[in-house]
Design a protein around this nucleic acid. Structure first.
Lengths: 114, 114
DNA sequence: CAACAAAGAAACGCTTGCGTAACGATCGGC
DNA sequence: GCCGATCGTTACGCAAGCGTTTCTTTGTTG
């Protein structure tokens, strides 16, 4: 189910959403953090630090730090994997789901306004 | 010409674009910087520090710093307004236009892949 | 069970962004 | 011409992110 956008619509959508998000939410996630958050919530688990690092093409500490930050914000949670205790499994949270749900609504609404 | 998106499409699009942008471009603009950049390129000039600050709902130093950063990247330029020399007019650059053009293509292509 | 490998976190020094407050330059009204 | 208002920048101390490297814990393999 492809979404066909003109260049003007594509940038206009990004513009409107970025603008509104900046105005509404003081939590200023970086693009990397946003990518990580969406990866966690949109791709089936399990998610690990190593896996996310590979997927985004960044180093592991980048993921660790992003999880620190977003964990403090309550957007994600970390649980040690009991089957291989070297691993940490990243868990979704209610607050994180809510955050993305609102963000999705923002995109939809700004898209309609185009 | 509204764009109708389902929640899944909206977040999926944002996910794909964020991911690809993180992987492709080391310039990691913050959401604020991106919002400023898009405002400059999508809204008719003139743009001033004060105007952008009001539009985004942030303080002036935030704009000044973002312009410093993006100016160093060649994405925007600053010119003193000769009619009221207190003002600074923010100018677009070829490189900035190119940057956004590529970014728009990224959005369009990821949208098609949904 | 010893040795190596792997996963994630922590340490390090550095850079960049933040909010608040102060500043110099410029304008406008009296 | 002066004085208050306006515009953008700078200064300050602080928080957060970065890349690289090192460390700790846990698994795996010979």
């Amino acid at each position: 189910m492809p979404v066909e956008l003109t260049p003007s619509q594509a940038l206009g959508l990004w513009h409107a959403v970025s603008l509104e998000q900046v105005r509404v939410d003081s939590r200023d996630l970086t693009l990397r953090q946003m990518a990580i958050l969406l990866e966690i919530y949109l791709v089936p688990p399990p998610h690990t630090v190593r896996g996310l690092a590979a997927k985004l093409g960044v180093t592991k500490p980048v993921i660790t730090r992003a999880l620190d930050t977003m964990g403090a914000l309550g957007l994600v949670d970390r649980v040690r994997d009991e089957r291989d205790r070297r691993n940490v499994v990243i868990k979704r949270t209610v607050e994180g789901a809510l955050y993305l749900e609102k963000f999705g609504d923002l995109i939809i609404n700004q898209g309609r306004k185009l």
